[in-house]
Design a binder for these strands. Structure first.
Lengths: 122, 122
DNA sequence: TGACATACCTATGTAAACTAGGTATACTTA
DNA sequence: TAAGTATACCTAGTTTACATAGGTATGTCA
C-alpha cells in the first residue's frame, strides 16, 4: 500500500496506456486527456520526470524512433516488471475506491469482463 | 478541482462522518478504520491538524463536552459551509473516479438511492 | 502498579505533483 | 516568407498533503 492515503499515482494511468501499445510522452498526455475527457491534463513538467523514474525502476524502456515526419520521438515500452506494477496499482486503486465509497456511501458497482463497457458511453 | 491529481482529501471522509453526527477526534479515527475495514487508519498526527484547519476554514465547529467517564472530549460539529464543502468534494471524487475507471477500463457502476447497499456486503 | 487504551497536541520530514521556465522542430496561414 | 501555433522533449525549484516521531495526560484492567 502507498503511504499516501488515497493518492493514486499517475504512473498507474500511464502504465495502463502503455499496456496497450508503445507510446511517446506527448502522445500519453493527449491520450490521457481524451480518455478522461480532460479531467487529467498533465503538464510536460509532470509527465517527463515520471517517465524517467519509471524507466529507472525498470517498469518501462525508452527507445528513439523516427516519426513519419522524420522527427525523432522517444517511445516507451512497458516491461514485465511494469505490468506487475500496474496490476498492483490497479488492486490498490480498487481497494481505495471501495473503501472511500463505503465511507461516503451510496455507490454500487460491479466489474465488467471487457474494457470499455456501455456504461461508459462508448 | 484540486490541484493535486487524484488526491482526494481525508477531509471529505471526515466531513462525511460528521454529517451523520457530532464526533470527537479519536472517535473519527476509530470509525474510519471500522468503515473502511482498516484501509484508512489515520494517525493522530494526521487527524488533529486537519480538524484544526477545517475549523479555521469554518467547515466545522469544535466544542468541549464531558464524556460519561467525566473526561473531557473535543467534539466537532459540521457547519453549513462544511456541508457545502462536502458536497463539492463528493462531486470531485465522483469525477475522478469515473475518469480513472474510464482510463483503466473495465468497471461499470451505478448509483443506488440509499446509503449502504447490498453490493457493499452490509 | 504497570501496561494499555483513550484522548489530545506540535514540529519536522517526505515525496508526489505542480509551476515556470527552457530548447527545438514541424505545420499552418496570413 | 514570416509569424504563430502545435508538437516534442527537458530541468530546477516550489508547494502541500500526509506521515513520522515525538510529547502530555486521563481512565481502565490485570
Amino acid at each position: 500500500m502507498d503511504k499516501k492515503l488515497m493518492n493514486i499515482s499517475i504512473s498507474m494511468l500511464l502504465l495502463r496506456l502503455l499496456e496497450e501499445q508503445d507510446r511517446y510522452g506527448y502522445e500519453l498526455i493527449k491520450e490521457l486527456e481524451a480518455r478522461s475527457e480532460n479531467v487529467f491534463s498533465l503538464k510536460e513538467g509532470t509527465l517527463y520526470p515520471i517517465l524517467h523514474t519509471l524507466e529507472l525502476e525498470g517498469a518501462v524502456e525508452g527507445y528513439e524512433k523516427a516519426a513519419e515526419t522524420g522527427r525523432t520521438r522517444k517511445y516507451y515500452h512497458i516491461t514485465k516488471k511494469g505490468l506487475k506494477l500496474l496490476a498492483e496499482k490497479k488492486k490498490e486503486w480498487d481497494t481505495y475506491q471501495k473503501a472511500v465509497n463505503h465511507v461516503i456511501g451510496g455507490m454500487e458497482y460491479e466489474y465488467s469482463t471487457e474494457y470499455g463497457t456501455a456504461a461508459w458511453g462508448f
